[in-house]
Amino acid sequence: MVHHHKKRSRKAESPDIPVAPMLDMAFQLLTFFVLTYRAAPIEGQFLMNLLPAQPVTEAAEAPSDKPSDNLPTTQRTLPTVLRAGAGGVLAQITVGEQSVPLESRALEKELDKYLQDPNLPFDQTLIKVDPKLKYGELMRVINAFSNAFVSAKKPPKLSFDEWVPGEGE
């Protein structure tokens, strides 16, 4: 009898917390967060230091002690011209004096010749861009140059300027 009484009192002491309302609220919060969630786009960037109106601009990197640094900037700069065709697509790329392939991988291979040759002093490039060229096409070339600089173990130093039609022809 005594034992039975003890059991009853224990049952009466145990608190009965209603979890269902809290669950309702939690589900409402969850619904809000699920509906407002927007996956952040995976965006990258190319950082450049562009100085105004001068023949050659370059990224402000720490100067190195390489012998090519003693050369004037104009001799260390690989001149590149991008010409646009109909609809602003890339029609011609001229690196130095030569026309190079338009396809990205082939372009990178061609750029490797200039940037990986120890006899050539190039450690930066100035890209003259046709004003009608689409930004997407320019970015394709910047991407190829960036990869070529990385392959040549040189810090990418890119800059660009507007190409005046008739210039360099």
Binding site: Q45, L50, P52, K132
Partner: peptide, 28 residues
């Protein structure tokens, strides 16, 4: 990606004229 370089360049020049030198070009 379909914007002309001319428009981009004029924006860059305007930024440079106001003293900005550091640029980050975004791409996916």
């Amino acid at each position: 990606r379909d914007a002309d370089f001319q428009a981009l360049n004029s924006m860059i020049k305007a930024c440079q004229a106001n003293g900005f030198r550091k640029f980050a070009f975004k791409a996916m």
